[in-house]
Design a binder for these strands. Sequence first.
DNA 1: CTCGGGCTTTGATCTGTATCAAAAAATATA
DNA 2: TATATTTTTTGATACAGATCAAAGCCCGAG
Lengths: 196, 196
Amino acid sequence: MLFPNFTMQEQLTRYIKGIITVKDEELDKILSFFKPMKVEKNELLVIHGQTSQRTFFVGNGCLRIFFITEDGQEVTRYLAFENNFATALCSFISKEPSLEFIQALEPTSLLYISHKDFYHLLEIIPSWENFYRHYLENAYVNNTNRLMSFLTLDATERYRQLLSTNPKIVQRLPNKIVATYLNISQETLSRLKSKI
Amino acid sequence: MLFPNFTMQEQLTRYIKGIITVKDEELDKILSFFKPMKVEKNELLVIHGQTSQRTFFVGNGCLRIFFITEDGQEVTRYLAFENNFATALCSFISKEPSLEFIQALEPTSLLYISHKDFYHLLEIIPSWENFYRHYLENAYVNNTNRLMSFLTLDATERYRQLLSTNPKIVQRLPNKIVATYLNISQETLSRLKSKI
DNA sequence: CTCGGGCTTTGATCTGTATCAAAAAATATA
DNA sequence: TATATTTTTTGATACAGATCAAAGCCCGAG
């Protein structure tokens, strides 16, 4: 392939333009800070305790953000398929070491930008502040919805909701992972799948 | 009292200056959009289904943001004491009707700004965008911590965590409310308080 | 001071979901 | 194709916390 990243840069362009209006030279500047990268299935991109220095944009494949509880249980906080960003956002914001891991669940090609470059863009490109605002707003709304789903729905209802709002997750990922996303045990997921 | 709002404006000034650097005339402009208001105990400020047109800054007293589940349970999403903002943020962001209520739990004096004016400030005062960014970042981090606490802690652990990070909530508010904040029944809260 | 209505506590019971264990099925490896 | 490994299913049991019910307590209104 002559231009292996052509498509991914385009995908990102489309994503950005869907949110903000930018001049072409600004867009070029923005894109110039995103580097392509390929990761294998199960590879870790951010390791617990490490300051998250990068934000990822998935071109193809899937990333999951998860953490591990005191008694060793994995909990999946976020799943990003193609054309989505994935960041250990809390650590990105606070600049504290990450409590979370980021892992590829499939062979994944992505673009990444460093923390430093991301903040640099905030300074040199006014509309990037706007982009970030929308990104934060969106992350906040998602998180709140997820919080509400845990506070108000039982396991079956959460699974039903996931099926209707995000069927890809159930279709593409193994039960094991889906269960950690719904915060139920594999056994319970298996049982309620057979009932629905 | 001659200047009943003097203190509250000062409180807000201190809050804003703790986050961003603003010129005095910018600050005056900002403050000019915040109007004072008093609400009685139990009074509702935002009603379910209403587009949230306001953001509140608590001068004195306490506001809670809550929603009601399908089977009629109240769930408290956020509690704001003095020197804190309270917004039905999802509805503020999406401009959709609010799924949440905002209610005073004590006689409360506050400053409010309309949605429209808030966005107007974003346009005319560049550092306000910065303020809002910090506000969003902070809201996001809080929400994520709360999400994690529900995913990883049992009732007793959540109560202990609340006691250590936010003792005011336990001290100032009736069990009933604390229970809806921890998402446990009053009976369970009563039982675990007696054990600790 | 006292009466009434809400809070809080205590007890008994029930239920959703976890956990443990093992079989069955699917997938990867040789 | 056979074998090893992982994932999913099924069954049995245990438990945290809900719900229902009733008694006790507190605090404000008159």
